[in-house]
Write a protein that binds this DNA or RNA. Structure first.
Length: 325
DNA sequence: AAAAATGCCAACCGCAGAGTA
DNA sequence: TTACTCTGCGGTTGGCATTTT
């Protein structure tokens, strides 16, 4: 018996989402929280498969997503992370809390790959004289890189496990984070759509007998706490107080790490509506939103420094990209 | 101004792993 | 243990937008 299709192809709509569909989906998630995607199409009447709903939410409708141009720093992050992690876009995206894996993947495929390709070509032209040397070096570097990747994976695992405990450095290191700023003024065709959604959503909120925060509180608390670290804070007692604490922690973590960027991000104005911000980063563990860059930079900088024999890894990684900027 | 080429990105597809009965 | 469902992930593609000819 073959694998059943993820959804019944008959009667399932495909293609771009309409603002109306977005509203329905957002409204539903606002009430029930993300998750249980299987139930979404049946409960909402959307003629979409569950996968499509999830994808739409995680890649587009989820609050806290930054759209538009990538900053120089984000570019560097992606390039370095791609060198470290390969095409594991979800893992890379976890270090760029406001970006989706799809976004990063697209950006890599459309911009950075070419950029690096050009760079490489340029370097090869410039270094024709000692090409044999560089070949042998690069071979050795590849071996070292593999070893380093393994080492880093181990280290990451150790660090991730240790992060289950409260990390006093997390907030502090967070303050050192370069603030990711993007003048997201890109106006896509969809922007107008989201504005429509914003308007309609606001109407919906006004009309709704129960305001959104109440809806959020009255809904299943676990639905907001898909991520384990948040769940730890409130799952033991899904009381209103506990949930409020969770929301506060959401907001505080965001305001600390993203206050500047948040204020500058003008996209998706609808999600600046306070009620909806409770969704912030529902997909990303708080741990990651609080200290993604510090951890990464720790790898990038400390690890190489601590292991003198592998110091050229960073040289290589940075050297490959430094001239890009 | 129109056609062709290229770029870009939202969305789809299929596989794999985790969870569950 | 097994079969099944659900979800997440990465690769790919279709179609719209923009640029070039």
């Amino acid at each position: 018996m073959g694998r059943p299709p993820c959804c019944d192809k008959i009667g399932v709509k495909k293609g771009p989402w309409t603002p109306e569909e977005d509203i329905i989906l957002v409204s539903y998630i606002q009430e029930h929280g993300p998750g249980n995607w299987r139930a979404v199409p049946t409960n909402t009447g959307l003629l979409r498969c569950s996968k499509s709903c999830r994808l739409r939410w995680t890649n587009y409708l989820r609050p806290g997503i930054k759209r538009g141009n990538f900053t120089e720093h984000e570019e560097k992050m992606i390039i370095h992370l791609q060198a470290l992690l390969g095409n594991r876009w979800a893992a890379i995206a976890s270090y760029l809390p406001q970006r989706t894996d799809n976004d990063i993947k697209n950006y890599w495929n459309t911009h950075l790959k070419k950029k690096l390709g050009k760079m490489k070509g340029h370097e090869e032209n410039g270094e024709k004289g000692n090409s044999s040397d560089s070949k042998s070096i690069s071979k050795g570097q590849w071996e070292r890189r593999l070893q380093t990747d393994i080492h880093m994976a181990k280290q990451a695992l150790c660090e991730a496990l240790s992060l289950d405990k409260p990390n006093p450095n997390a907030v502090e290191s967070n303050s050192n984070l370069p603030v990711v700023q993007t003048p997201t003024t890109t106006t896509t065709t969809y922007a107008s759509s989201t504005e429509n959604i914003a308007r309609l959503l606001q109407n919906w909120m006004k009309k709704s007998p129960m305001n959104s925060s109440e809806a959020a509180i009255s809904s299943d608390s676990s639905s907001f706490n898909n991520n384990p670290s948040v769940g730890l804070m409130s799952s033991s007692s899904p009381s209103e107080g506990a949930i409020s604490t969770t929301f506060l922690s959401f907001n505080s973590s965001n305001s600390e790490s993203q206050s500047q960027s948040q204020s500058e991000v003008d996209h998706e104005a609808m999600f600046e509506v306070p009620e909806t911000r409770i969704f912030q980063d529902e997909r990303k563990p708080v741990m990651e939103t609080q200290m993604p860059l510090s951890l990464l930079e720790k790898w990038l900088l400390d690890d190489a420094a601590a292991q003198g024999q592998e110091g050229d890894f960073m040289d290589m990684a940075l050297g490959e990209t430094a001239d890009l900027f």
